[in-house]
Structures are given as structure tokens and as C-alpha cells.
Design a binder for these strands. Sequence first.
DNA 1: GTAAGTGCTCTAGCAACTAGAGGTTCAAGG
DNA 2: CCTTGAACCTCTAGTTGCTAGAGCACTTAC
Lengths: 146, 146
Amino acid sequence: MLSIGKLSKATGVKVPTIRYYEQIGLLPEPGRTSGNQRLYDRPTQERLAFIRHARDLGFPLESIRELLSLSDSPDQSCAAADEIAGRQLAAVNARIARLSALRDELERMLHQCASGTIAGCRVIEVLGNHELCAHDHREVDADDAP
Amino acid sequence: MLSIGKLSKATGVKVPTIRYYEQIGLLPEPGRTSGNQRLYDRPTQERLAFIRHARDLGFPLESIRELLSLSDSPDQSCAAADEIAGRQLAAVNARIARLSALRDELERMLHQCASGTIAGCRVIEVLGNHELCAHDHREVDADDAP
DNA sequence: GTAAGTGCTCTAGCAACTAGAGGTTCAAGG
DNA sequence: CCTTGAACCTCTAGTTGCTAGAGCACTTAC
């Protein structure tokens, strides 16, 4: 049985994040010590490792919730799990495509800059005038800000 | 002079988003009609187009704020603008690298799946056990969920 | 004149956490 | 045994970049 701090070190998930996962029902409410501190058993540790790994792979928490409930019923077909992973793969590919277009545009912008004053700065100019762009990077869906 | 709806159509920025930009000080408070409705002039329309374009390129609003204040002082060196764009390029490249690793891992996971039951599902198995991964996709920084 | 459409303000919500306040409990050293 | 400091507790609020909805006022076209 592990305290929340030990569990955090063991899985690489921060302490407040673990409590957050409990709050939203991804992790079960753990047992407590007499002094009301959380105590985690092995299965919960594995569950958290699963969540952590899926998050590392970019799965949203809602998908992880589905995957967890699938892994709780081992006799079902794994088609559902494949579908979730496939969706995630498609999303990742779309984001890569989008970001590649952005990278090209940013590089173009930077290469054109003669390092003069703002008045002639290509960076500012291109941002102000979409006509100066090589391609259309607007009409894609998701947010990609860091 | 444009109403907020017309401005929205002209720039492709949604009406509530325009009001939000005003609220956080990215756009100046516009004039109003006698009936208290916003009226936008040409410079503000250009400013919004600039914001929109920079957002499309993934710049965070804080960087856009800096870029806007730079573009207001045309005699300065554009080194600062270059630096911001360079930071954004670095961030985009990092995200592309990260996402490429994730894509590889997801593809590996999916290819290995024999489409049987959950009990033998590689997707679930790999997620539960990081040892089964080809490489380390964890230690990178930003969040990449869609 | 009236009805549809557009505008107004305000509050609350989304993902997925993170940070802080203000207090309790545990573990190790003396 | 007692103290000290780290780790724990709950709760609220903030982050980013919007989006949705309630409940009104105004404008425009017929």
C-alpha cells in the first residue's frame, strides 16, 4: 500500500493530478489511514500507470475512460479499443499535417526577413496580410497553440 | 464602419471571440451607435485580421500582444519580432517531433492487434505496460491532446 | 407597425490540470 | 517522548482561448 506521494513517484503523475483523477471518477476512491490519508493498492497503481501512458500517447481523458471500461471486460471484442486508437491516430496525423504547414509558413516568414526595422519586417507584414501566404493554413479545425 | 456581425464575416472571427478580444485588451474599445452597438473602423478590422492570422499560425495570444505592440512602433528593430516567430517555430517543431513519435507508437500498437478479444488486445496491453513500447515518448513537455 | 434578425451584458462551462491558502498527520531524530 | 519538518488534507480559484446560454434591447425590411 502506497501513500499518494509514493504513488506519484512510482507513476510519474503529480499528486494534485491523482486527486483530480479521483474527483472526476477515473480512479476509484482509495482507502484511508486512520488519519484520513489516501492509501493505494496495486491494482489502482496499475490503473494509474495505464492512464498515464494513454495520456502520454495523447488520448483525451474521455477516450481513456472508455478504454478503461473496455479493459475491465476482457471477453469483449477488441474492435472498440482499436477504433478508439484509430481515431487517436487519425487525430495525431491531422495535427502533424497542420503543424507541418505552419512550420513551412513560419520558416518562409523568417527567411524572408532582412533584419531591418519593423516597418519592413516580413514577419509583421505577413501576419498583417494573408495574401502574402504561400498556402491556406486557415481552414483546418483544432487549436494548436502551445 | 462595420457592425460586429459584419466584422465577424469579414475576418472569419466569431462574434463572441471579437468581444472576448476586446475584453482582454487585444482590441480597443470601439465606438458605439446611439443604441449602444459596436461600430468598427478600418484600422481595427486590420488589427483583427492580424490577430486572426497569427492565431492560425498557432501564436499564443500573449505573443500576439507583443507582436501588435511591435507593429505599432515601426522604427524599432524587427529582431524582437523575429525572436517571437523563432520561438513559435521552435515550439511547432517540438510538437511535430513529439507527435511523430506518438504516431509511430500508435501505428505499432494497431498493427500488432490480432483483432481478438480484449484479453489479448495489444492496444490495451501496450497501454497498460510501458515496457512494451518501442521508445520513450513520455519525457517531452507540452500537452498534445486534441 | 411589426417581426425577424442582430446586438447587448452577464454568467458559466470546456479540457486537463496547476497553484495557493490554511490546516492536519506522519516519520525521523534527539 | 517530543519535536520538527515534510507530506498530507480540503477547498477555491486560476490557466488558455474561447463557446453557450439567459434574458433583454435595438435595427432593418417588408
